[in-house]
Simulated assay, not measured.
Amino acid sequence: MSDRPDISPDDSGLAAEYVLGLLPEAEARAFRDRLEAEPALRAEVLGWERRFAAMAEAEVEPVAAPSGVEAQLMGRLFREEPERRGAGLWRWLAGLAVAALAAIAVLVYTGVPDRGAEPDFAARIAAEDETLVLAAALDMETGRLAVLREAGDVAEGRAQELWLIAGEAAPVSLGLLSTDAETEIVVPADLRPLFAGAVLAVSDEPPTGSPTGAPTGDVLATGTVSEV
C-alpha cells in the first residue's frame, strides 16, 4: 500500500499489478493513458518498480517462521471473500518460495518496505507503439537520474542515447542508456533546473554515442517531464 496521500489504495494496487504485468490488456491500456496525465500515479509506478527490483535482488536467508504465522498468512491470502483490487498482487506474493515466508509475513502485517526518498521529477518515455518504454525519475538534490527499462531492447551494434530538450533549446545529451534494466545518470547541477516541463527523448546512435553532440539517428521515444 502507498504512503502517498494523493494515491488511493485502489490506485496503489493497480500500479503494483501494472508493474507485475498482471492487468488485463484493456485495463493496462487504460492505466497507461492515465499515466500520461497523472504525475502522482507515475511516481507510484516508479515506487513499485523499485520495491520489486529490491525484492528480486535481495538474498533472503532461509528462516523458520514463528509458530502459527504460516497458517495465519495462508488464511489471509486465501480466505473466501469477493475479489478485491490488488488480489492479483497477493496471488503473486503467495507464489514466492516458502523459504521467504517470514519476509512475506512482514509485508502482510506491516506493509511494503520503505521506498526511500521521493523523486522531484518523473517522466514516462515511450514510443508511439509502446515497443520502447522507459520510466525516469530525478532527485534534484543529488542529481541522480534513475531510468528503468520497462519494454524494448537496444539494437545489436547500436546504442540508445538520452536527451534533455528544454523549450526551444537544442537537445543536450544526458548519456547512453544501459542495455540492462536500469541506468543511473548523474545530471550536472546546471542542467537540473531545466527538467521542469522539459522533454526527454531517446535516439538511436552508434555504439559510442552521437559523434556530433546532437541526435543523429531515429528518435525512438519521447516523454514530458512532470513535477512529482
Results as ranks from 00 to 15, higher is better:
residue 126 A to M: 07
residue 135 A to L: 12
residue 117 A to Q: 13
residue 114 D to F: 04
residue 157 G to Q: 04
residue 148 L to C: 10
residue 151 A to D: 11
residue 155 A to F: 08
residue 128 E to V: 11
residue 118 E to W: 10
residue 152 G to H: 02
residue 149 R to V: 03
residue 121 F to T: 15
residue 156 E to Q: 12
residue 127 A to T: 05
residue 112 V to K: 08
residue 140 M to F: 11
residue 152 G to F: 00
residue 141 E to Y: 00
residue 140 M to S: 13
residue 134 L to N: 13
residue 136 A to G: 05
residue 139 D to Q: 14
residue 142 T to I: 03
residue 144 R to W: 07
residue 131 T to L: 09
residue 132 L to K: 12
residue 151 A to I: 12
residue 129 D to C: 06
residue 122 A to W: 01
residue 126 A to F: 07
residue 111 G to V: 00
residue 121 F to W: 14
residue 114 D to K: 10
residue 133 V to W: 02
residue 129 D to A: 10
residue 141 E to I: 00
residue 155 A to G: 12
residue 136 A to V: 03
residue 129 D to F: 03
residue 138 L to W: 01
residue 111 G to K: 02
residue 114 D to I: 03
residue 149 R to H: 08
residue 132 L to C: 11
residue 111 G to Y: 00
residue 112 V to F: 15
residue 132 L to Y: 10
residue 133 V to K: 06
residue 138 L to D: 01
residue 139 D to G: 10
residue 134 L to M: 13
residue 134 L to P: 07
residue 133 V to P: 06
residue 137 A to K: 03
residue 117 A to G: 13
residue 135 A to W: 03
residue 137 A to G: 15
residue 115 R to L: 10
residue 152 G to W: 01
residue 142 T to S: 15
residue 151 A to T: 15
residue 114 D to Q: 12
residue 131 T to Y: 14
residue 126 A to I: 06
residue 155 A to N: 11
residue 126 A to N: 10
residue 136 A to M: 03
residue 123 A to V: 02
residue 131 T to F: 12
residue 142 T to H: 10
residue 135 A to G: 14
residue 126 A to T: 14
residue 146 A to Y: 04
residue 146 A to R: 14
residue 138 L to I: 02
residue 110 T to Q: 09
residue 137 A to N: 04
residue 149 R to E: 03
residue 127 A to Y: 02
residue 120 D to N: 11
residue 142 T to P: 04
residue 146 A to N: 06
residue 133 V to E: 03
residue 141 E to Q: 06
residue 124 R to K: 08
residue 119 P to L: 06
residue 152 G to M: 02
residue 145 L to N: 04
residue 126 A to P: 06
residue 120 D to G: 13
residue 117 A to W: 06
residue 151 A to K: 15
residue 154 V to C: 13
residue 157 G to P: 03
residue 131 T to W: 12
residue 127 A to E: 01
residue 125 I to R: 07
residue 150 E to D: 11
residue 137 A to H: 06
residue 110 T to R: 12
residue 145 L to Q: 01
